[in-house]
Design a binder for these strands. Structure first.
Lengths: 338, 338
DNA sequence: AGGTCTTCTGTGAACGTTCCCAGAGTAAGG
DNA sequence: CCTTACTCTGGGAACGTTCACAGAAGACCT
């Protein structure tokens, strides 16, 4: 009986009020730690709360306050990246750090199907979150539209083409790719290929563009292989293909560290020495880079900072402050692989 | 003016009703796709919705329906694991698949500080979710308490000690560890060590226990090194320590694949051949296993299934069905590393 | 014509809070 | 003793839905 009752109906603020012999208003003031409540009343309410087992219903609270205190983080990635790409974890934790400090709850929503996409859009529009950080959206997303139409405060990590007006925080992929390719060329290589990935996204396109720019006259379209995702597996495959096309290759730019790790495995299995025979560089400076032997020369991108700044952009919008797009600095980390 | 108004006040169901010249109730029926609404009314409402730009307020809806249609997934892991452990991604996607099919929204909440812990507990108790899947909770968590006290439908992935009464889905870590250690011994090794991790958790404890059981008389406490987390870095470090203690070691059981990968790096850097000089086995059968050279012999644990079943347990509780704890099967994947 | 069933519509009553205002009581200041 | 100010409390109104019920209108049968 007792347990059925508790399971069936939770104690409300009114139950507390009558248990304490006080009014709803006073209980609310105690629960929210407001001023203008006597010591006696406070004690009585606290005792009553314990007695009836009250816990505040946030749904009702959110309804009347017209806000939820939550920020959504939308992850729209294919399966494999959720495992392989350490950047996502860093972005998540970066955003969480900022939001947690501002006493917002970060709720992550992952999109893994068309159905998810619609449901998440509903979630965003329904008032369940006060804003959203969007990681790697596609331009075609219903998410981006939903955000735009309803004016939900939002910020993108990365800069999806075709979605203006929404603040974003990104890095200059092209410039960074150009810089590290130039550095690789500086070691005296002349036959340099690239394993390009995710060309459906700005990051993929820009890294390829930067590579081309750095190569200049040395650029050979036949030495670029293209794959859909930044994964270890495609790195392995891509390197094998490059070696088939050009066995005397002496340098490779892999579009990410995971890709580079796969490529290094392929190089080593083919009997080549790194960096003596072939120099290789990556992109991200994720945990992969230090795990490679030799350690990987790569572009350091501040993934956690991307998450932090994006969260800050969302908070700024909520507070009515300006939220300008931002491009973060990258740097080349030169290690043993080239 | 226009934009200020839309930003300031969203259209409500009443706005739609008066725009369509119909009542609140009829609009609600249209929005929810219920029967008993004439074709004319339906058209008028749909037109009005478009005209005023109405989108349903889920907060109000959830309040009156006394449910949210959302399930929380609570991740309580130290930083590094969020990046290194592919199991978490698999669990997440497994749970999402089940919940998405049942039209529930999965919301992931990560706990990264004491403050997060309290906030997440509030989130769970406040009626914002209808249930929760809890990944790797500690017994001391306020989360577990919150779940127990309020009777929020919940299921654990893994089986934290000291929390009875809440359904869980787990694997038999001890039996699996014993099996793979026995298999390793079957290759004729006699000086076998273990890199044990996460002994504050049942998985860590049980894997160590299974190792001891399989070793029997061969067990040497001096050949077990202990580390707090299942990471590549600790695998590297642990292997170096083991080699220092016992240079003629001929076998290692690493508590996870990531740990094994680190250990393999250490072994290879010390000039040892795998599996000729030293045989090594891991645990998880994550993407790490296939990346190692030689590929890693390991215990396959169905991480996505853990997520799926846990989600199903939560749904069962919501529906008032029985939700018995479950132990999933593991199997030994024998590859080239031993 | 009267009855019953079905379809359709409108409206009051929740859901559980917070916010705001009014009023009572007390203290301080002239 | 009258203001004025401050502290404390209670309760009405609102937040935006869904739900249950009542009643109207039409179809169909006897």
């Amino acid at each position: 009986m007792e347990s059925t009752r508790t399971r069936t109906r939770r104690a409300t603020i009114n139950d507390v009020a009558s248990a304490a012999g006080l009014s709803r208003g006073t209980v609310s003031r105690v629960v929210n730690g407001e001023r203008y409540v006597s010591e006696d009343a406070k004690l009585a309410v606290e005792e009553a709360i314990l007695r009836v087992g009250y816990v505040r219903n946030s749904v009702a609270r959110n309804l009347v306050r017209q806000k939820s205190g939550a920020i959504g983080l939308i992850i729209h990635e294919p399966h494999s990246l959720l495992f392989e790409d350490p950047n996502i974890g860093s972005i998540l934790l970066g955003a969480n750090a900022v939001l947690s400090a501002a006493d917002y709850q970060l709720v992550s929503l992952i999109i893994d199907s068309e159905r998810d996409s619609r449901r998440v859009a509903d979630y965003l529009q329904g008032g369940l979150v006060d804003g959203a950080v969007i990681v790697s959206a596609r331009a075609s997303d219903p998410i981006a539209l939903a955000v735009k139409n309803l004016g939900v405060p939002a910020a993108f990590v990365g800069h999806p083409p075709g979605i203006p007006d929404i603040p974003y925080v990104a890095i200059d992929n092209a410039a960074a790719a150009e810089a590290i390719t130039a550095r690789l060329l500086g070691t005296g290589r002349t036959r340099v290929g690239m394993i390009a990935c995710a060309l459906d996204r700005d990051s993929g396109q820009d890294r390829l563009a930067g590579f081309k720019a750095a190569m200049g006259d040395l650029f050979d379209p036949g030495l670029v292989v293209e794959y859909p995702l930044y994964t270890y597996g495609f790195g392995l495959e891509g390197m094998q293909e490059l070696l088939r096309r050009r066995p005397d290759l002496d340098g490779v730019f892999a579009a990410s560290d995971a890709v580079a790790a796969g490529a290094m495995t392929a190089l080593q299995e083919s009997g080549r020495q790194i960096p003596a025979d072939v120099g290789i560089v990556g992109f991200d400076d994720s945990s992969w880079a230090l795990r490679c032997r030799p350690q990987l020369s790569t572009v350091r991108q501040p993934a956690d900072l991307l998450g932090k700044r994006a969260a800050e952009l969302v908070l700024a919008q909520i507070r009515g402050l300006p939220s300008p797009a931002e491009v973060l600095e990258t740097s080349v980390m030169w290690r043993g692989s080239a």
